Amino acid sequence: MVAELTSEKLFSILRECAGEEESVTSTQNAVDMEFTDLGYDSLALLETAARVSSEYDVDIPEEGLSEVTTPAEFLAVVNGLLKVA
């Protein structure tokens, strides 16, 4: 079992689910940017959440994502759920 979702893995999954975004050059710089500013819409976020749920065997409730606007917030939600699991 994977202990934590990293920003690198999150961006890898985002790219696989929604395509490469030219504006994302460094995951460190992009982690605090809003998904919309990075070129990802809510559908991309839902697809990414479904993929992360499957790969990490964790249930990510949709309502838990409604307030998530940045990759850092997404990581906090997912990693919080992984610690509980």
Rank of each mutant, 00 (worst) to 15 (best):
M1G: 15
M1H: 13
V2A: 14
V2R: 14
V2P: 15
A3D: 12
A3P: 06
S7K: 00
S7Q: 01
S7F: 00
E8W: 00
E8L: 01
E8M: 00
E8S: 03
L10R: 08
F11T: 09
F11Y: 11
F11S: 12
F11K: 09
S12W: 02
S12Q: 08
S12H: 02
I13R: 08
L14D: 06
E16D: 04
C17R: 12
A18G: 15
A18I: 13
E20R: 11
E20H: 13
E22A: 11
S23L: 07
S23Y: 02
V24N: 02
V24K: 05
S26R: 14
S26F: 13
T27A: 00
T27N: 00
Q28H: 07
N29R: 11
N29F: 08
A30T: 07
A30L: 08
V31T: 14
M33G: 06
M33Q: 15
E34G: 01
D37E: 14
D37P: 08
D37W: 07
L38H: 05
L38K: 07
G39T: 13
Y40D: 05
Y40F: 15
Y40A: 08
D41I: 11
S42K: 03
S42H: 05
S42T: 11
L43N: 06
L43G: 06
L43M: 14
L43Q: 06
L45W: 02
L46Q: 08
T48Y: 02
A49K: 06
A49Q: 10
A50V: 11
A50N: 12
A50I: 11
A50T: 12
V52Q: 05
S53H: 01
S53D: 01
S53Y: 01
S53C: 02
S53N: 02
S54W: 11
Y56Q: 01
D57N: 11
D57I: 01
D57P: 02
V58F: 02
D59C: 08
D59E: 15
I60V: 10
E62C: 04
E62H: 13
E62D: 15
E63D: 14
E63R: 13
G64D: 12
L65A: 07
S66A: 13
S66K: 15
S66P: 03
S66R: 14
E67Q: 10
V68W: 14
V68A: 15
T69I: 07
T70G: 09
T70W: 03
T70A: 09
T70D: 04
A72M: 02
E73S: 13
E73V: 13
F74T: 03
L75N: 09
A76M: 07
N79H: 10
G80K: 00
G80F: 00
L81Y: 00
L82W: 02
K83Y: 01
K83A: 04
K83W: 01
V84A: 06
V84P: 00
V84D: 04
A85N: 11
